[in-house]
Design a protein around this nucleic acid. Sequence first.
DNA 1: ATGGTGGCACCGCCA
Length: 255
Amino acid sequence: MKIATFNANSIRSRMPILLDWLGKNEPDVLCVQETKVQDHDFPTDAFEGSGYEVVFKGQKKYNGVAIFSRSKINDVSTEMDDAGDEQARFIKAVVNKITIVNTYVPQGFERDSEKFAYKLDWLARLKRYFESNFTPDRPIIWVGDFNCAMDARDVHDAERLWGHVCYCQEVQDAIGKIAKWGFTDVFRMHNQEDKQYTFWDYRQMSFRRNSGWRLDYIMATAPMANKCKTCQIDKEPRGLEKPSDHTFLTAEFEG
DNA sequence: ATGGTGGCACCGCCA
């Protein structure tokens, strides 16, 4: 079973990249974040005949998540709790009896902002979601754009960036607590190197300088982590006419 | 050099 994740930054703009990548890589499941499309405008027609089923939760302009699967998708939910907050950052589905949780963690703007407080609260809610709905002996994959670099290897300038909303103690702790509940970062399980980035800020032409961040993750509970054979970052250029600031991350599991 | 681009939906917000 091959599972991949990709922050699209508008799925409609990345359709050529997405369809091409699906055709070449044939993952069983692809989780997408920042689809930036309302549900009634989701480009379902474009995937007719692709062999993929898709479920999604979007809203106008921002956020939005989707799960593509070659096998039947069951038990979809688009909210982690009953807080009634509709930011379209969470979608869960079951595929081949494996629970897939796809999240677009809030970015947080600045550390003294309301948005940052929301980010921390959102992550605390996600922790409660896992605690109250599952036990870590179940096969669960949690993937997405976590907007968090977990250690110095995951950023291009650890000294300067320490304290950034995507590289600071509070967010590392919030994600760390969820990981401690029962998740393994399967990329790190297979690769200890630094500079293994999944995101480059296009405001700073950072791709050509490799001024990146590792913000995208595939996390697995023990029964799945034990079966994880590889986890790789896609290094191919991601489109020429229109850049995409994140790349694909893929993990392969036995069975 | 403290900026810069890109996407969406508007006349700014978010990353």
